[in-house]
Amino acid sequence: MRAILTTIGKDQVGIIAGVSNFLAENKINILDVSQTIMDGYFTMMMMVEIRNENLDFVALTQQLDELGKKLGVEIKIRRAEIYHAMHQL
């Protein structure tokens, strides 16, 4: 399944490294990355692919919350269909 991982917060050293390491450890493949500073906030979008269809999403979101706290940013992951559904006919 494809999902979009968003990381938003105050810019500092190690955000991309922290997020990428976590994804690598969990065998989540990054397909596309974009990163910008929006309204003064570090804003990163990643399109990722999760091969393990049985992955426990509840646990994954909790782990990302914890990682976000550590890095001082907010990390959210959502399956990509929700964005397509809301913005594309």
């Binding site: 979009i4 968003t6 938003i8 974009s34 910008t36 929006m38 804003t43 979008m45 399109m47 959210k76 990509a80 929700i82 964005y83 397509h84 809301m86 913005h87």
Partner: peptide, 11 residues
């Protein structure tokens, strides 16, 4: 997917 649309949904 445009960044703007993703941000809009998140907001």
């Amino acid at each position: 997917m445009e960044t703007e649309k993703i941000i809009e949904t998140i907001h």
